[in-house]
């Protein structure tokens, strides 16, 4: 029986312990700061925030290239010669990474690609769904596993609130008027993944502790999330008391497991410090 190896991009923000536990292969995406290209993970999130506070600019982000995917797949094949690779990829609607993976995959056999149409916690939820299935049923047929993962892709839900509008403004994602008005009135846009694209769906007004709770309750009202697992996402700077409060709400609404994930540099360049997000899979 051939072993199934899962791979994904660093934009999934998978916690290290989960990566190690399930031996998930992670390929880094890119963060470009001050003209220098860094692999996601080389730069700390604090360095990204510091760069913004010094220059009022945000680093740009770039996709993983074909060569890097070829290296990843070759490395997996060298370590696990008879393996079947299932690459669970970052949304093709917001990054060229998946296209690069498709090109790289042409030279490999027994390699399957799944476009999750999701990022960060949403992508991580799908990867972890595959990893858990594989753990529970190690002899699962690859085709069956792929079918199951593909069927869960439209059920992955991600919503997040940026800590402030500063990073969205620096990235040209909010107008000057929205930035000034939003800052004065403490309005934050809720950003969700819809058909693979990041779109702002509604707005919340007030302190982060209040809006984070509203977002979590609205999210749970809107989506019938599987109570086995919830992923909560934070970017550096989110208050510890808010984290405890969110965890309590999640437990009180019946979630068996709550996993916190820190947004990496790739996602933090959009959300800024103190952002909060939720991801889960619908039943």
């Amino acid at each position: 029986m051939k072993r199934i190896i899962l791979s994904t991009e660093s934009g999934a923000d998978l916690p290290k312990d989960l990566v190690e536990k399930h031996q998930i292969q992670v390929v880094p995406m890119h963060v470009i700061m001050e003209g220098k290209d860094y692999l996601d993970g080389q730069l700390s999130v604090e360095e990204v925030f510091d760069y913004h506070s010094r220059t009022k600019k945000i680093p740009s982000t770039a996709a993983t290239n074909v060569h890097e995917y070829e290296d990843l797949f070759t490395k997996i094949r060298t370590e696990f010669p008879d393996s079947i690779i299932i690459h669970i990829g970052y949304t093709s609607k917001a990054s060229a990474s998946f296209q690069s993976a498709l090109i790289a995959a042409e030279n490999f056999e027994n390699l399957f690609l799944i476009d999750t149409l999701n990022v960060t916690g949403g992508l991580a939820a799908i990867v972890m769904y595959a990893a858990t299935l594989l753990e529970e049923e190690p002899s699962i047929e690859p085709v069956r596993l792929i079918e199951k993962v593909e069927s869960i892709v439209p059920k992955a839900r991600l919503a997040f609130l940026p800590g402030s509008l500063d990073f969205l403004k620096a990235g040209g994602r909010v107008s000057n008027l929205a930035y000034i008005g939003g800052a004065l009135l403490k309005i934050k846009p809720c950003i969700e993944l819809k058909e693979g694209k990041l779109v702002s769906t509604r707005k919340y007004r007030g302190k982060m502790s209040i809006v984070a709770e509203k977002l979590l309750r609205d999210y749970l009202d809107e989506y019938d999330i599987d109570r086995k697992q919830l992923y909560l996402i934070y970017s550096v700077g989110l208050d510890e008391s808010i984290k405890r409060q969110m965890e309590e709400i999640a437990k009180e609404t019946g979630f068996e497991n709550v996993t916190w994930m820190q947004a990496g540099a790739m996602i933090s360049t959009h959300a800024g410090p103190g952002g909060f997000g939720i991801a889960g899979l619908e039943k």
Binding site: N176, L177, G181, T201, R202, K203
Partner: peptide, 16 residues
């Protein structure tokens, strides 16, 4: 501006 730009501001600016 709102129609042309790909803003992610949940129409905060336009609303104001």
């Amino acid at each position: 501006d709102n129609a042309v730009m790909d803003y992610q501001d949940a129409n905060i600016g336009l609303g104001l």
